[in-house]
Design a binder for these strands. Structure first.
Length: 342
DNA sequence: ATGGTTTTTACTGCGTC
DNA sequence: GACGCGGTAAAAACCAT
């Protein structure tokens, strides 16, 4: 159930996997991706607690201390209204969106309507001059109304994105990307016949993926107001029509979040990433659910580090089944070379 | 529509604390 | 006996053709 679209680009991956080509060259963010730039997403900073190395998943909303092994800041959630989420155009400033909860207040049915009949309020027909004038008015009114409708759905969509992002603890930059996608979708007239919530959810999902702050489709669905399949459909639609370049999700992007959810020490996280590294080298990741691979790697790392968490526990945080972990983790251990301490 | 792959569901057996 | 783990068969989900 999990995998839906998260690795739908599997063919691409498995082709470019066997070593030779680095990442298909499509990525726009070279840093946070791939084993080649393995440690580039770790930046050395100061640790407030032990003064040691601070490992940091940059755009991921997670900051982990390498020495004392604790998550310093995790899933930095900001509740409250999104102020200034859109930096680009000037008129963006006018379409500010308030706090998520104000979303429902927007349309109070205040828009004006001009009747199509050429009659006055008493039912008398209009003289030709007035008829012409009414035509003009109607035309303008139509324009205003449709543009307002567009604004309004955009506003609703952005509010929805913000609400979901808050619920998922997605950092601000990702929300901005999601907002940008939403705007592009509107501009490209992609909303027709689809629910606002579906597109908004898909935009957020796509933004999370492209910014390497992945949230699984199930996680998105968990806070969305529409079903998974609809989000998936909308996502595909967006990707195709907007030419979004989506690489397969790197399982490692899930590791630190899952690890901290499991209260696992730093060493396990590092180990799990090593395991995934090895597994990737063996081609064990392509075509498989990234969440499943991450879960299996964490389980395996737990065994190796003598910090075991039950399959059930790992399965729960990763939203996969124990069976998947079982099927995967032995392969991973094999890839690592089963005899290995630390 | 069909086929192939992966994941899930459901269930059973085994060893251990 | 409960629990964690492993295996399996059938079903479901997904992609590709």
């Amino acid at each position: 159930m999990v995998r839906t679209l998260e690795h739908e680009t599997r063919r691409t991956e498995s082709e470019s996997e066997p070593g030779s080509r680095p990442e298909g060259g499509t990525r726009t963010k070279p840093e946070t991706e791939g084993s080649e730039a393995a440690s580039s997403r770790r930046e050395h900073e100061r640790c407030p607690e032990c003064g040691g190395t601070l490992t940091r998943a940059h755009a991921r909303g997670e900051t982990v201390c390498g020495d004392c092994g604790l998550v310093v800041r995790e899933n930095e959630i900001d509740h409250g209204p999104e102020w200034r989420a859109f930096d680009s155009a000037e008129r963006d400033r006018r379409s500010r969106v308030g706090a998520p909860t104000t979303r429902t207040l927007h349309d109070k049915g205040l828009s004006t309507a001009i009747d199509w009949r050429d009659e006055d309020a008493h039912g008398r027909s209009l003289v030709p001059e007035k008829r012409a004038r009414m035509d003009r008015l109607r035309r303008w009114q139509g324009r205003i109304r449709t543009s307002r409708a567009g604004e309004r759905t955009l506003r609703a969509a952005l509010g929805e994105i913000d609400r979901m992002a808050s619920a998922l603890g997605v950092p601000r930059p990702v929300r901005e990307v999601a907002s940008a996608i939403q705007r592009r979708a509107g501009a490209a007239d992609l909303l027709r016949g689809r629910s606002v919530e579906g597109i908004a959810s898909a935009a957020l999902y796509a933004a999370c993926r492209s910014e390497d702050v992945p949230r699984s489709l199930d996680e998105i669905t968990g806070v969305a107001q529409v079903g998974r399949t609809e989000i998936g459909r909308a996502y595909r639609h967006l990707v195709r029509e907007l030419d979004l370049e989506m690489a397969p999700t790197d399982p490692r992007a899930y590791v630190s979040r899952y690890c901290s959810a499991l209260d696992l020490p730093e060493g396990v996280r590092v180990k799990a990433e090593e395991v995934l590294e090895a597994a990737k080298a063996e081609g064990l990741l392509s075509g498989r659910s990234p969440t499943g691979s991450a879960a299996a790697a964490i389980y395996a790392a737990g065994l190796l580090c003598d910090e075991k968490r039950s399959q059930e526990a790992v399965a729960e945080v990763a939203e996969v089944t124990e069976v998947t972990i079982r099927n995967r983790y032995r392969e991973h251990l094999g890839a690592v070379g089963v005899i290995e301490g630390t």
